[in-house]
Amino acid sequence: MKLTLKVWRQQNNASKGALESYQVEANEHMSFLEMLDVLNQSLVEEKKVPVAFEHDCREGICGSCNMVINGRPHGPNQGTTTCQLHMRYFKDGDTIVVEPWRAKAFPVIKDLVVDRSSLDRIIQSGGYISVNTGQAQDANAIAIEKDRAAHAFDAAACIGCGACVAACPNGSAMLFTAAKVVHLGTMPQGEVEESTRVQAMVNQMDEEGFGMCSNTGACEADCPKEISLTNIAEMNRAYLAASLGSQKKS
C-alpha cells in the first residue's frame, strides 16, 4: 500500500516545527511503528535525519509509543496503543497526519518525542505505598474481595502514556492521576495513605500546569487501556474528603 505521511518535524524545543510530507510503501501486516521504521530507513539511505519517535516494548505495555494519528492519540482504534495498531486499518492511498502529544506540560523534545516527566513527578509526589506491606506471602494473608481487587486492577492497567492529556481539549491529567489514586487507594495496603496521597498528587498535577477537567470524556475515548471516567469521580470524592474532612490544615 502507498501512503502519504504528514509528519510533525521539529528540531528541538526552541525551534518552530512544521508538518512535512513523505511517501511510504508499506504493507498491511506492519504495525504503525514498523511503517515508520520503513520511512526512517529510507530517510537514512537518502542521508536525511530520521523521524524521532519514542518506542520500547512494542507490545502495548510500556506507554512510550506516543503520537497523534489523524487527530486521535494512538490512532483511530479503541483500546490500542500505536505499536499495536496495524496498517490493515488504513487504505491504499491514504494520507495520514502524525503529530506529537500537545499539552503545555508536555514540551516537545524532537519531532514526535515529548517530555512526559511531569507525569513522573506526579507519581513521585505520592503515587507509591510507603508503609511496610510485609513479604510476598503476606499479600495472601490479607483477604480482598474479588470485585475490589478487579476494581484496583482496572485502574492499575494505566501505562502512563499520557494519551489522556493529549486527547483532552484542556490538557488535563485527571484520568492518569485518578487511575493511580484509585489503583493504590482501593487496596488495603494503599488505603492507609490515601488522604495524603490524593492531596499531594492533585497539588503536583496542578503545579505542573495541567488543565482542569470539563468532563468531556475525550480521555476515556482515547485511553489505550480504557481507563474509565468513574475513576475521576472517585478521585474527586477522595480529594474532597481529604481536603474538607481531614484534621490537617494544609
Binding site: 508538518l19 497526519v97 500537545r102 484542556n170 490538557g171 488543565g211 470539563s214
Partner: peptide, 12 residues
C-alpha cells in the same frame, strides 16, 4: 487556564 494548559492545537 485550560486554554493555556493545552498550548497549541492539532493540525487535525
Amino acid at each position: 487556564k485550560n486554554k493555556a494548559a493545552k498550548g497549541s492545537k492539532y493540525a487535525v
